[in-house]
Structure formats: structure tokens, C-alpha cells
Write a protein that binds this DNA or RNA. Structure first.
Lengths: 228, 228
DNA sequence: TGGCAGTAGAATGTGCACATTATGGCCGTA
DNA sequence: TACGGCCATAATGTGCACATTCTACTGCCA
């Protein structure tokens, strides 16, 4: 199955092993992953199409360096969708929805108590997906899942070793509380502030100097040979 | 360039030449379009990934038969985004935005007056894209463009020969009027009603018996060989 | 006559070899 | 010494041939 190659590259990106600007050569990947070049090609093409990588014709595929502007745009779209989502959940949801929401919040609390950053990182993302799923709209869920992965990619690539506390657990609990109280206005406002906080928090991570950016800037100027 | 193959297939779908359930065989397409099978393969894979076609492993790729439920879901997502869009446009837009909106409405009026259904069909879609573009969010524009093509695909496939009047021009003019008056509430409401009307109008198109559906139903039963 | 196994054909999936293009080093010249 | 053109090398792009899988027809058997 060629999905394995796709997943391997994606995982490497989420783990921050591939810095922005890195070139993903087909022969090198095929050698490392021990698969044929065609498999690698297909996986790369798919990743490019999904926005994970950038392809330059006759040059290769590269790990993109998302600008703060693009991240803001993605969060802006998320805001539009997710404020609408919580609003809709306030107008009507089934009993299992309430139960799932409470269960999720409890899991996040548990992760915080155990200081399990990795688990909390995963749960924070899943919370937003959960809200979409509770709307019962498959298209919406898929779309939001894509936006979420893309919005976190920037973070994963730039500062992966430190999982974000996201200011999340508390925000999430408040949002759930508002939904259960069927307070649409408040829920939407809380979601808006939550996402605004996230994007601001991520923006603060841009300033630290990115080594790859320097390498790109000096390519063809200084007499340094790139390591890869 | 392989984009030509991609565009050719897409155009055929939009023109309604490919009915739902039709199989797009690689050798047949390569023969018809006079390109190598690899080009066809790449184009098909891309179309599948974008949701235009459906692929069954070791079976081939087929023109999908979107259910009413899926169409409703897509319109639901569009409602979330587009009500937010008009709301945002009401809070702030530049002078060129107002000018472009007015110009578009005028073009639609002109198309109606000339009874140019084809042009009106295109303009009706472009109106929604225009609103997204005026927000200045590239991600949003791309996303909405995809949703729009997918939501109209169902229509194109099931009833392509009759371009929809969409109850559009009038609705669009009202929406623009509300935006220019900076009446966010009204604009959002009008957009909501507009999209609700569109999806209801499209739903009404499902009942008429689909010839391909019959062909599929009799496949393997009657002694008819499929034309392709 | 109805059902089923076997088989021939075609279509999809996969890997390989070649063509094309970009990159980096080398050399000649101003 | 610096600049510009040339060439070797490696990577990407493309087409082809083979392997695998599914479909459909045929013939056999109950």
C-alpha cells in the first residue's frame, strides 16, 4: 500500500523532523523508506495537492514555509466555520452529543493533570473536529479536519519540540459549558476569542530566527554548500 | 501539459456529457483524447482527489452520483461560510469592492435582458466567488471556489441542458444592496434564504428518471452492451 | 434449464528504462 | 581575478512493458 509512504512523510512533518525549505528528493526518499521511486512520487504528488508540500516543476518538492499571513487566513476561515458550528450546536443537539463533549473535556483535564503534553496536543485538535462531527455533516468534518492540520502544520514545523498548551483546556471547557447552556451568543464569542488567542500565540513563534530561512537567503551568495 | 486532459474531462462533466455512473476507462480516454495513458491516469487521479470522480481499486474511475444529502451538506457548509462573508463585508470594504459588486450586478442584469442563459449561469457562480475574494482572504477564496464547483456539479450532471435561472439575479442584487447599506443582519439573512432556495430548487431536480441509472439497473440483466 | 467452475480477454497497477532539464564544477577569456 | 560559456552529473518527467486483478463468456454438471 502506498499510503504508508504518504503517512511516513506526513508524520515526519508533524514531528518537526523536516524543516521548512527542506528538499524531498525522490531517489533519497525511495532509498530511505526502502520503496520504489514511483511510490514516493505518488505520495509526494498527493501531499503537494493537499497543500502539505510545494512542488517546483523540474526542481523537486519542498517543505513549505507558511507565512504568518497564510496562517492567519486559515484561522480566519476556521473562525467563520467554527463560530457557526457552535451556534448550530446550541440550537439543537442530541443527548449523546452532550455526553461526548463532557467526556472529551474530562480527558483533557486528565491530560493536564498528568502533564501529558503529547496527549493534550492531540486532544486539543480533536476537540475542534468533535464539534464539527456533532453537527452530523460529513463534508464539514472533512473540511475542518483539513483546515486544522494545515493550521497546526506551521506550528509543527517551526516549534515542534514544545507542544502548545494552547491555553486550550480551559477555553474548551468554557465553550462546552456555553453549548450545554444553549447560549449561542456566548459560545460563538468564546470560540472567536479562543481562535484569536491561538493565532496570536502562534504568531509569537515566528520571530525566532529560522536557520533554513538564512540558508535560503544566502543561497548563491555565500560560498557555502548546502548540507543536503 | 497534462492540464489539458484534466480540463477536457472537467469540461465534459460541466457540459453534462458524462452522466453519473459512467466509467472513464483509461485506454478509451487515451484513445479519444489522443494522449498517452499515463497522462490520463494522472488527470484521473487528480480529479478523484478533488472529489470530481470516484475511484474503485482495480475497477476504474466513475462519474459519481451525488446524493441529495451530500448536496445539502455542501450547501450547509457554504451557508456557514457565505453568511459570515457577507457579514464581514458589511463591517468594512473598500471603494473598489462596492464598484466591483455594482458592476457584477449590472452584468447579470444585462445577461437576463439578453436572455443569455449560459452567461448568467457563469455569472451566478462568480458572484459568490467575488464576495469571497472581496474579503481579501486567498484561502477562503480557494475553499469556496471548490465548494461551489462541487455544489453545481450535481446540477450539471443531472440537468445540464437547462441552465438554472437560479432565482439568482434578483437575490444577488438584494444582497449587494444590503451590503452597501452595511446592514449585516439583513445581508446574512438574504444570503441564507438565497442558498436555501438554491438547494431546494436543486433538490427538485432529483425525481426525473435518470437514463444512466436505468442503464446501470439493467446491466447484466438485459442483453444490452454499454455504448462506451 | 439453472447454476457454477474454468478460462480468455481486457483493464488497472507497478516497476523500469529512457528523455529532458536543472545544477554545479571547470575552463577559457577579458 | 572575475565573468561567461561549456560540460558532466544527478534529478525530475515520461512512456512502455509486464504483473495482477477483475469481468464476461463458455462449457459442464446437477
Amino acid at each position: 500500500m502506498d499510503k504508508a509512504v504518504y503517512e511516513a512523510i506526513r508524520r515526519a512533518m508533524l514531528m518537526g523532523r523536516l524543516l521548512p525549505g527542506t528538499k524531498l528528493g525522490e531517489p533519497a526518499l525511495a532509498r530511505v523508506l526502502k520503496v520504489s521511486r514511483e511510490r514516493v512520487r505518488k505520495a509526494l504528488h498527493r501531499l503537494v495537492h493537499e497543500g502539505w508540500l510545494e512542488a517546483v516543476p523540474n526542481r523537486g518538492t519542498f517543505v513549505p514555509a507558511l507565512t504568518i499571513g497564510e496562517v492567519r487566513e486559515i484561522y480566519d476561515v476556521r473562525t467563520m466555520l467554527e463560530t457557526a458550528i457552535v451556534g448550530r450546536l446550541c440550537t439543537g443537539y442530541g443527548p449523546p452529543a452532550a455526553q461526548r463533549l463532557k467526556a472529551h473535556i474530562n480527558e483533557e483535564r486528565l491530560a493536564v493533570r498528568n502533564d501529558d503534553r503529547g496527549r493534550l496536543f492531540g486532544l486539543s485538535g480533536e476537540f475542534h473536529v468533535l464539534l464539527a462531527e456533532l453537527c452530523g455533516n460529513e463534508q464539514l468534518s472533512k473540511l475542518l479536519r483539513g483546515l486544522l492540520t494545515r493550521s497546526t502544520m506551521h506550528f509543527s514545523l517551526s516549534a515542534p519540540e514544545r507542544f502548545h498548551n494552547c491555553a486550550g483546556p480551559h477555553d474548551h471547557a468554557d465553550i462546552v459549558k456555553a453549548i450545554l447552556a444553549r447560549d449561542a451568543k456566548k459560545a460563538a464569542k468564546l470560540m472567536l476569542d479562543h481562535l484569536l488567542g491561538l493565532v496570536e500565540w502562534q504568531s509569537a513563534w515566528q520571530p525566532p530566527p529560522n536557520p533554513v530561512r538564512l540558508e535560503e537567503a544566502f543561497r548563491g551568495i555565500a560560498a557555502v554548500r548546502r548540507p543536503a
